[in-house]
Design a protein around this nucleic acid. Structure first.
Lengths: 174, 174
DNA sequence: TAACTCATGTAAAAAGTTACATGATTGG
DNA sequence: CCAATCATGTAACTTTTTACATGAGTTA
């Protein structure tokens, strides 16, 4: 149930509408927790009903702005301080690598080269963001900066790995 | 729909029962595509019904061994050679980092230190596996080795990042 | 013979995706 | 005034998780 906590976390920073939150999921949070529009609106309704967030204002075009409540802040805090740390993740791109041996060597290395290229491109994108954002000392922004740096280092590692893996496949596959 | 392809990929190597496959999901595949027992058995039934796999033998304790069919191999191949490359992933552990600024500096750094430690432990585990497995030249094993190396490099990068992030939080959070 | 591992199945709930549906406001 | 963006909602479907349920063979 991480989506609800992601929403609570975003609202802890400042009040926002479903639409505002959707935009954040499409940009900064896309990297660590993708979410669809339908899911966001649905979850907001539940959080509101449960008293973890509340409507703090309305605007044009039926806009509803939500703010986090004390109960919401407590729930967020509890989640953040939970002892367990789940390092698990799912990657369809890596899963495919597992079965690359069923293809020809050329097809296999082509896939890994594509993998490398995509990561190199993402690296460039993330570095551009890092270098163009105006970094104030805002606490929430600092957390975002840490994640961005994770993405940069991760992309670099993934690209280097993919180039190394291409070589291995070339050498070791018949 | 990656689970079905993961199953097809495993069966492309050699026939196996649902239980055998479950064990592989708990070990090697856990890193890139976790799956529950109920999901595996359900998907196997569907694949069998769809003619992508077939029963190739039975054993004690109601054991049923499945093998991949030509249709299954074709489906696997199609999936592996699809043009799109989905780099997206979900990480609850990273999502939490986004909201660390809502905690005290001590709580925040404690989380990142835990993050570092868990990754260091995983690194040690994976390196131990790499150093103790007997590496034959088997193509399927080589693919597994590439994934293992990805895990090793990724854990190392994550650990280093977490230590760096701890420093940043100490410096920049009030 | 008791505990453990092997072995499969299914039901219910939760989470996530895709698609459809609608309408207001704003900027060029 | 037209296109783009803002803004929300929901229905249907797929995927994943959790839990319950059962029983056969193996090992100490």
């Amino acid at each position: 149930m991480s989506l609800r906590h992601a929403l609570l976390g975003l609202l802890a920073e400042k009040p926002a509408s479903g639409y505002d939150l959707l935009k954040r999921f499409e940009t900064s949070l896309a990297m660590v927790w993708p979410a669809q529009q339908s899911q966001i609106y649905g979850e907001l309704a539940k959080l509101n009903e449960g008293g973890l967030i509340e409507i703090t204002g309305t605007g044009a075009r039926n806009r509803r702005e939500y703010g986090i409540t004390d109960a919401g802040r407590a729930e967020l805090r509890e989640w953040l301080t939970e002892p367990g740390l789940d390092l698990a993740f799912r990657s369809a791109a890596l899963l495919r690598v597992f079965f690359l041996w069923t293809l020809t060597r050329e097809e296999g290395t082509a896939y890994l080269e594509r993998f490398a290229r995509e990561n190199r491109e993402r690296l460039a994108t993330l570095e551009a963001i890092r270098d163009n954002v105006e970094w104030t000392g805002d606490p929430a922004q600092i957390a975002g900066w840490l994640i961005l740096e994770y993405g940069i280092r991760g992309s670099r590692t993934a690209e280097e790995w993919a180039r190394w893996a291409t070589e291995q496949l070339t050498e070791h596959l018949p």
